[in-house]
Design a protein around this nucleic acid. Structure first.
Lengths: 197, 197
DNA sequence: TCCCTAACCAAACAATCGTTTGTTTAACGT
DNA sequence: ACGTTAAACAAACGATTGTTTGGTTAGGGA
C-alpha cells in the first residue's frame, strides 16, 4: 500500500552532494546541474525526490540539525559539570562545522534569507538547535550582572566564525573550545566553593 | 587632456545602490537589473562605470574598507589607554556593520569566495582592515599564556555576528562592545598596577 | 558659440538558470 | 513469471542572467 523505498534509492547520495556543494559554494552558487553531476544523476531526476531547490535546502538543513543535535547531546551526556558540558558542546559543534562532511556547515554558512520562501522553516530549524546552547547556559552558575543572552550570542558568533578561518592541520576543536571558555568562562563565573578541586 | 569627471556623474549613487543590495540580499542574489533599477539607470549603463559585476563588488569593498578605516582610526585616536582604544574600535566597528548605509556591512556579509575571480583582491582588502585590530591587540597588556591570534579571531567572530542578530532599537554598539571586553578583557589582562583607578 | 566626449539610453545577445514533460528501466510484492 | 511502480533518463521549456553593441544627450573647455 504505502510506497516502498527501494534498496538502490540514491536519495542519501543526492542529499550528501547537495550538502557538500551548498557548504562549499553557497546556495545560489550551487546549481541543480552541479548537484546532479556530483551524484551522477540528471538535473531533472532531482525533482523526483524534492519538489524544488528550496525543498532540497530544507532537507539538508533538517538533516544537519539532526546530526548536530545527536552528536552534541551524546558528547554532553557523558559529563555533569555545567562548564564541562558547555565545553564539550562547543568542541563538538566546532568539530562538525569544519569537517568536509558538511551538513552542519550548511546551517552555519547558509543564512535563512538565502531562500526567502522557506526562510521561516530554516530559522525554526536553527532555533531548535540553538535551544541546546541556551539550556546549557541556563544551567551555568554565573554572576548576577552577566548578560546571558549576550554571552550566548558572543559564543555562537565566535564558534561559528571558526568555520571561516580554520585550516586543516590547525588547532583542534578541543583546543579552541577550551581557550574560548578559558577566556570567557572564568571571568563570568560566580564565586563558588571548590573552584580548584 | 585627462578626462574630466562631470558634476552629474552618478557613480556614487550607483555605488550606494550596489552596496545596499549586496548587503541586504547577498552578491549573487543581487542582479545588475536590481542595482540599475535602484539608482534609476538602465542595466547596460553600469558597464560604463565598471567593467563587470565583480569589479563593482571590489569597488564597494574598497569603499567599505576606506570608510571603516577612517571612522575607526578617528574614534581610536581620541584615547591612549590600550583597552579603551580597543573598546572604541569594537564599538565603531559594530556601529557601522549594523547601520543601513551598508558599505561596511558588505565586507562582513559577502565572503571573498562569492566572486572567485577577484577573491584575492577582496581578501587583501579585508586583511588591510583587520591589521588595525591586530595592532590594537599587540599593544594590549596580556598575560603570557594568552593566545593573541585566537583572541583576535574570537573578537572578530563575536563582533561580526552582531550583524546577524541585532535588531533596530536593541542594545547600542557601545553597550555590546563594553560587555564584550568586560567578559573577555579583564580575565586575560596581565596583573598590572592601578587595576581600579 | 561650437564641439568633444562623458554619461547615459535602447535593445538585443548568448549563456545559464530552475523546472516540466514524456519516456524508459529495473526492483519488488504477489 | 508477471505486473506494478519506484526511480531514473532524455530533452526541452520559458525566464532570467551578465554583458555587448550602436545610438543619443547634454555638460563644459575652447
Amino acid at each position: 500500500m504505502n510506497q516502498a523505498i527501494r534498496a538502490n534509492n540514491r536519495n542519501d547520495v543526492l542529499l550528501d552532494s547537495a550538502a557538500e556543494l551548498f557548504s562549499a559554494r553557497g546556495y545560489q552558487a550551487s546549481t541543480m546541474r552541479d548537484i546532479a553531476r556530483k551524484c551522477g544523476m540528471l538535473p531533472g531526476s532531482i525533482y523526483y525526490h524534492y519538489a524544488n531547490k528550496d525543498a532540497l535546502l530544507v532537507a539538508v538543513y533538517a538533516e544537519g540539525v539532526r546530526r548536530l543535535t545527536e552528536r552534541v547531546e551524546e558528547a554532553v551526556a557523558a559529563h555533569s559539570d555545567p562548564w564541562e558540558r558547555l565545553e564539550r558542546m562547543l568542541a563538538t559543534h566546532i568539530e562538525m562545522i569544519i569537517e568536509p562532511t558538511a551538513y552542519a556547515s550548511v546551517i552555519i554558512r547558509i543564512l535563512p534569507d538565502a531562500a526567502p520562501a522557506v526562510a521561516r522553516e530554516l530559522t525554526d530549524l536553527r532555533n531548535r538547535y540553538e535551544l541546546i546552547l541556551r539550556n546549557l547556559l541556563t544551567a551555568l552558575p554565573l554572576a548576577d550582572d552577566v548578560d546571558r543572552k549576550l554571552l550566548r550570542l558572543l559564543l555562537i558568533g565566535a564558534a561559528n566564525h571558526v568555520q571561516v578561518w580554520h585550516r586543516p592541520g590547525g588547532e583542534s576543536p578541543e583546543t579552541i573550545a577550551g581557550e574560548l571558555l578559558r577566556m570567557v568562562g572564568h571571568r563570568a563565573a560566580a564565586p563558588q566553593d571548590g573552584d580548584q578541586p
